[in-house]
Nucleic acid binder design. Structure first.
Lengths: 156, 156
DNA sequence: GCTAATCCCATTGACCCCCAAATATACCCA
DNA sequence: TGGGTATATTTGGGGGTCAATGGGATTAGC
């Protein structure tokens, strides 16, 4: 199911609030929690975002993976999945205010270089939040790479 | 259900008191006991924490395991699960004060290297308490490992 | 009677809600 | 097709509420 499409740029006010684009909110509406789950991208200057349901699936994956082992042993001794533990520690839950805005934690805003405007970038089953200029540069470069890879034809 | 998310850093006052983050308190609220169960992590310089209910489950599980294994002797003679026995012996019950704070036993604080600030680290089912600097180092290393593991795929 | 733990209260600051204006989008009718 | 209106979305700000913190008072334990 392709939920998050296209790119929207919204303003960040002096309280660090920013409106989540209405189409994205609609896509999140089915989720149990009225808000987003976010964490800093590990390889880009951006914030990764998805629904609470996806996080639950991640947690379930850990559970099922430890089936043959022992849930409690893992609970007590640790030594579980490094990825999942690391993600749980660095995610933030951003609830919507009545107007459909979220507050960007300053550490995440800094990571993405976001100050007064934020670009919401659809990635299908998830989306990202960028500083508009950084995203523009990243996108230009990505398109260039695609063109080169496509050879000398005139691109997709 | 994924209850413990994100990382919060709170101050430890001169009476060794520290506020448990409100979202974590909310997650513990259903429990029969108004407080936490903690014990020193066996593999890290951190304190492991979870609700009283989880402890009950541990006990029940140990019980049922002994019974179904026909090892009634084990239950009675105590030759059973070394891990659970060990944990039962070293856990502490930390009750909340009216403001939602707990007092860190000095042995545990020492184990984790906690002095004036404590990082509460969500791990999904449970959480940990670290010295902020130690956690930062640990998390950085974990993220590095993830980046290497991800290699050059285009994951998050 | 002294020490230590727990409770009670006050202060600070962050967060969240409500209201209101401005802007953009969709709709309708001539 | 065009103008104009109605609706939804985005944006701004004030104020109340709750969480975190610090200090003093009271109780329990030794």
């Amino acid at each position: 199911m392709t939920a998050f499409l296209s790119t929207y740029v919204n303003k960040v006010d002096r309280k660090k609030r920013v409106s989540v684009p209405a189409p994205f909110r609609a896509a999140l509406a089915g989720s149990s929690f009225g808000g987003l789950i976010v964490y800093p991208s590990l390889r880009e200057s951006a914030i990764e975002a998805f629904s609470r349901d996806v996080l639950e699936q991640l947690n379930n994956r850990r559970m099922s993976r430890s089936l043959e082992g022992d849930d409690f042993e893992q609970l007590l001794l640790g030594g579980g999945d490094g990825l999942i533990d690391a993600v749980m520690a660095m995610v933030h839950e951003l609830p919507f205010d009545p107007e459909g805005r979220v507050v960007l934690p300053s550490a995440l805003a800094a990571h993405a270089g976001i100050t007064d405007r934020a670009a919401f970038v659809g990635r299908g089953n998830r989306f990202q939040i960028w500083a508009p200029e950084a995203f523009q540069a990243h996108q230009d470069e990505a398109i260039d790479a695609l063109r080169r890879r496509a050879g000398n034809g005139d691109g997709p």
